[in-house]
């Protein structure tokens, strides 16, 4: 049931402009597996997709490149409602998945909603658990649940070292330029996610010195593409940010927030949202609200997950792999 409806939502989202010659039928086929454990590679504009039954198989494929890293998202430490009364054990399961990868990833990206209520103990739990991951470096961006009541002060105290403004920053690894953006602050009534003028100016400057052949990975909590504005699943000023990225050959945008995997290719930019490690949310418009989705217990882990990303030099886009926890 869940797989069938996930397919439907991806079909809808793929009716977007594609000008890069990617085989659409192949792309759709690949997408049909996303969220239940799919492996997709887009190399030089040609798509290959493989069924992912065992993570070990990934290692044997010719996809290990110069750099591999993992994205996790929406851990919601402190959440204890029916949709998942034990978010600690599912975060642990996600870390087990990471530790089972044939090669340890260079680092972990956490795309926000680390905590449910911004409580110090919730942050502590997440940090403590992630210490057992094979990758020691974790790069965070905040979700709206991490900046409650204090305008993000606690988040910045913990994770903001070396960052600018509300916590945005960039770094390089193996020739790939990574940019962590914050789009959960100063939200306006009736609006969506928000980057703000100061951050946009910083972004423009940050990208200016890069050659257009530099692969760029942008990560932020709320999607930087319009997934479903009716539920707030988009960012008001993302078009401005994306305009600075148009000249690059390879751009990958990684987000969380919507607690399900989705992918879209638009020109040079591949958009990808990761599953939550805590609880699933309904497909766009399929429920009265985007609140936590209660599924039968035996189904829960199949809807939670970890995203593995591989960069192979010279290829059109990074390979993005979603694997479920169950």
């Amino acid at each position: 049931m869940a797989e069938k409806s996930a397919r439907k939502s991806n079909d809808v989202l793929l009716h977007d402009h594609n000008h890069d010659g990617i085989d659409r039928r192949g792309f759709l086929k690949c997408m049909a597996w996303a969220g239940t454990g799919a492996f997709c590679v887009i190399q030089g504009g040609v798509l290959n997709s493989y069924s992912l039954s065992k993570l070990a198989e990934v290692g044997s494929m010719e996809t290990r490149g110069e750099l591999s890293f993992v994205q996790i998202s929406d851990s919601h430490m402190g959440f204890d409602k029916a949709a998942n009364p034990d978010v600690v054990s599912t975060l642990k399961a996600a870390i087990d998945k990471i530790n089972a990868l044939p090669q340890p990833p260079a680092f972990i990206l956490h795309t926000g909603d680390i905590t449910h209520l911004s409580k110090p103990a919730e942050f502590d739990t997440a940090e403590q658990l992630l210490k057992s991951a094979s990758a020691k470096d974790v790069f965070y961006v905040p979700g709206e649940h991490d900046v409650l009541n204090d305008e993000g002060k606690q988040y910045l105290d913990r994770f903001g070292k070396g960052s600018k403004g509300a916590g945005w920053y960039s770094f390089e690894n193996k020739g790939v330029h990574f940019i962590g953006l914050v789009n959960v602050m100063n939200l306006k009534a009736g609006g969506l996610g928000n980057l703000g003028q100061e951050q946009l100016e910083w972004l423009e400057k940050d990208l200016k010195h890069l050659s257009k052949s530099t692969p760029v990975v942008v990560f932020a909590h709320i999607p930087l593409w319009s997934v479903y504005p009716e539920w707030g699943w988009g960012t008001d000023d993302s078009a401005q940010a994306l305009s600075y990225l148009k000249r690059f050959g390879s751009v990958t945008v990684l987000n969380g927030h919507i607690h399900q995997t989705m992918q879209k290719v638009e020109g040079n930019i591949t958009f990808h949202t990761a599953a939550s490690t805590a609880f699933p949310q309904p497909k766009p418009g399929s429920a009265p609200s985007p609140g936590p989705m209660k599924v039968p217990e035996e189904q829960l882990r199949s809807l939670l997950g970890v995203t593995d990303v591989n960069y192979v030099r010279g290829h059109h886009a990074l390979a993005v792999t979603d694997s479920s926890l169950g």
């Binding site: 709206e144 649940h145 409650l148 939200l187 306006k188 009534a189 009736g190 609006g191 969506l192 009716e230 539920w231 707030g232």
Partner: peptide
């Protein structure tokens, strides 16, 4: 007024 966590709520 609105919910500043979910600003679509007005």
């Amino acid at each position: 007024y609105f919910c500043s966590i979910h600003p679509k709520m007005t």
